[in-house]
């Protein structure tokens, strides 16, 4: 081959690759090494925990199916507490405990005036739940299908580590069952019996709480969380728990 011929040939160096091809290759490499080094822990392209950039997960990157979540349309809450009462009734919550409650924020409007904002709170069914990590006997775990953080009461030894680990104060010890009790999105009381929503959502007169499958792009939760010009936030994002209860301002 003459040197001239060589110059005529297609280059085989990286310049010949389209950026898309390059990206694909890189991604594959990262996925492979990530998987090799422990998958979700180190992989830069991890699917399960993606969305660390913001609180709203990237489209299609919901680890569960149905990926149950709740959207709280915060400014509509009027603290009528029907949700609380419905929860107590449905899930047999004793007087000394709660699975969901309503907190109250105050914001200055200037000029000595204030507005009140009611903030419903409940278990956030985190993607990376601290309570599940610390449980010595896996008495609390993330349901593999739905992602709901559930309790297996007979397994609970009552060490209460999950209660100290939860960043949301979502757990209490229920003497009646001798186990920690918490919101399970009404999995035991309703969802498993064919109902499609939780007791608190059903009871809410102001349509504050919206429950559904975040992985379904036709669901209301999906549409609310991904709506344009919407402020979406979660509580205590700094703890890295990746919660599934989203708060919005519209």
């Amino acid at each position: 081959m003459k040197i001239d011929d060589l110059e005529q040939m297609d280059s085989e160096d990286l310049r010949g690759l389209t950026s898309n091809e390059r990206r694909k290759f890189l991604k594959m490499g990262l996925a492979v090494t990530g998987l090799y080094l422990g998958g979700t822990v180190l992989s830069l392209t991890s699917v399960k925990n993606a969305g660390a950039a913001g609180v709203v997960p990237e489209d299609g990157q919901y680890p569960y199916s149905p990926h149950y979540s709740m959207v709280i349309r915060e400014r509509l809450c009027i603290d009528c507490e029907r949700c609380k009462n419905a929860c107590v009734k449905t899930n047999h919550v004793p007087a000394y405990g709660f699975r969901t409650t309503i907190l109250e924020k105050r914001r200055s409007l200037g000029g000595g005036k204030h507005e009140t904002i009611f903030m419903p709170v409940l278990c956030n069914h985190c993607n990376r739940p601290p309570c599940v990590r610390v449980c010595p006997t896996t008495a609390t775990y993330k349901d593999e299908k739905t992602g709901i953080v559930v309790m297996n009461p007979p397994r609970c030894i009552g060490c209460k580590t999950c209660m100290t680990a939860c960043p949301y104060n979502a757990r209490y010890f229920k003497e009646e069952t001798r186990a920690v009790d918490k919101c399970d999105f009404c999995f035991n009381s309703r969802l498993s019996k064919g109902e499609s929503t939780t007791a608190c959502v059903e009871a809410c007169p102001a349509d504050v709480r919206v429950f559904g499958d975040l992985a379904d792009n036709k669901s209301r939760v999906y549409q609310l969380v991904h709506a344009p010009e919407t402020m979406v936030w979660v509580l205590r994002p700094e703890t890295g728990a990746v919660p599934n209860v989203f708060y919005i301002n519209s």
């Binding site: 990590r133 610390v134 449980c135 010595p136 006997t137 896996t138 008495a139 007979p154 397994r155 609970c156 030894i157 009552g158 060490c159 209460k160 580590t161 010890f173 001798r178 186990a179």
Partner: peptide, 21 residues
């Protein structure tokens, strides 16, 4: 621990290696 008697069995059948406790 409110149900310490559940611990010996729970610790074995429910062993959680991510749990410091």
């Amino acid at each position: 621990i409110e149900n310490s008697w559940r611990m010996p069995v729970g610790n074995v059948i429910g062993a959680n290696p991510t749990s410091n406790i």
